[in-house]
């Protein structure tokens, strides 16, 4: 089998087990909705305040939900020793990275597709634009590129779920800043030109960390 087909087989396995257990998407989605609602209470009901803090709320929500689902992605593998099974399979470690990253990317996109309309209704904001979709997609790729690497690393430590956010959050600072700024500009109806520098940072982050994570992933899971 070629590299891509092996990776897709791992992604398919993740999707199948997700369909049967409904562990990741359902709980992360509920969590995301609860975070959005909690923020609503935290910042009061005034429409002006909400439109100022909306991009921040959106990205804090996605970051937290992302950490939750990325954690689950490898904890589930570890629990039944499935990770050992993946590692003895006749394929390179990079295949595991590619497959798991693709799976996590799909899960996060599903969560975002459902959470964004809710966000739009609750905050009365125009989130259905090509700009928001582009920003969300680029930022999500960056999240899962780094997140899959760190999740594989965190699952082999003593504190497991606690370790991922502590490793993950400082490194994704550029993604969070760019996503918040670009979404803010997009929500206030700025043209593409205004968003360009942020989209460039997001794109550069994605490319660099897909490559770097791909290269160092084998060191994160080897035992």
């Amino acid at each position: 089998m070629s590299f891509l087909r092996k990776a897709l087989a791992i992604t398919r396995k993740d999707i199948l087990s997700e369909f049967r257990t409904r562990e990741i998407i359902f709980s992360a989605l509920l969590f995301a909705l609860l975070v959005i609602i909690t923020f609503n209470f935290a910042f009061g009901g005034s429409q002006e305040t909400l439109s100022v803090v909306a991009p921040g709320i959106l990205w804090v929500t996605f970051t937290f939900a992302g950490i939750l689902s990325l954690n689950r992605s490898f904890v589930a593998e570890k629990e039944e020793n499935c990770l050992e099974g993946l590692m003895v399979a006749p394929m390179s470690r990079e295949v595991i990275y590619a497959g798991k990253t693709l799976g996590s990317l799909l899960f996060m996109i599903v969560i975002e597709i459902i959470a964004l309309p809710v966000f739009a209704i609750l905050f009365d904001l125009p989130v259905f634009s090509a700009q928001i979709v582009t920003v969300t997609l680029l930022a999500t790729i960056g999240f899962v590129a780094v997140g899959t690497l760190f999740s594989a690393l965190a699952v082999n430590t003593k504190a497991r779920e606690m370790v991922l956010p502590i490793l993950f959050l400082p490194v994704v600072v550029p993604v969070i800043i760019s996503a918040v700024e670009a979404s803010g500009l997009a929500l206030s109806g700025e043209p593409w030109g205004e968003l360009a520098p942020w989209l460039q940072i997001l794109g550069a982050f994605d490319v660099i960390f897909l490559v770097v994570s791909f290269w160092v992933f084998s060191y994160a899971i080897e035992e």
């Binding site: 780094v146 690497l149 690393l153 490793l167 400082p170 490194v171 600072v173 550029p174 800043i177 760019s178 940072i201 550069a204 982050f205 660099i208 960390f209 770097v212 994570s213 160092v216 060191y219 994160a220």
Partner: peptide, 17 residues
């Protein structure tokens, strides 16, 4: 792994901030 990823991240952090 952290040492490598963190160092490569630094220029992007500086750029973004």
């Amino acid at each position: 792994v952290i040492g490598i990823v963190g160092f490569i991240d630094l220029p992007i952090v500086v750029l973004a901030t």
